[in-house]
């Protein structure tokens, strides 16, 4: 009777007003049988982390197009640590320059999905990582 469902929070931190990409990923993950919590635009890192805790998600997908990922993504990681959350896998998407990736990985972001990433790869990543 017991069945685990993969739960993913798709969040858009920061001020940019475009969530097309985030929505496409959200739908793809849903179609792959996952439960996707979608919270809309303009989320603060505090809101994202609190939502992730209440929803007990396995993954947080952060999408950022505004260029503020270098401050926002590590801030989310920091807040997760402050709250003692170590078991949520955080990924990033949006427009992220190649040279920023090593730093984001160092900050604890597990994977970065650039604009061209096939949806199948993103789905596979979520299936495999859990």
């Amino acid at each position: 009777m017991s069945e685990r469902k993969i739960r993913v929070l798709i969040a858009k931190p920061g001020l940019d007003g475009h969530d097309r990409g985030a929505k496409i990923v959200a739908r793809a993950l849903r179609d792959a049988g996952m439960e996707v919590i979608y919270t809309g635009l303009h989320q603060t890192p505090e809101q994202i982390v609190e939502t992730a805790i209440q929803e007990d998600v396995d993954f947080i997908g952060l999408s950022c197009l505004s260029g503020a990922h270098m401050t926002l993504f590590p801030r989310v990681m920091g807040l997760l640590r402050e709250n003692g959350v170590e078991d949520i896998i955080v990924t990033g998407g949006g427009i992220i320059p190649e040279e920023d990736i090593p730093k984001l990985r160092e900050a604890g972001i597990s994977a970065i999905f650039g604009p061209g990433t096939p949806l199948e790869d993103i789905i596979e990543y979520h299936r495999k990582a859990k």
């Binding site: 849903r30 996707v36 603060t44 505090e46 209440q54």
Partner: peptide, 17 residues
Amino acid sequence: TGGAILGDRIRMSDLNT
């Protein structure tokens, strides 16, 4: 598929914290 998009929180953002 058993999947779902759970979007009600969009309207409840300020309650998060």
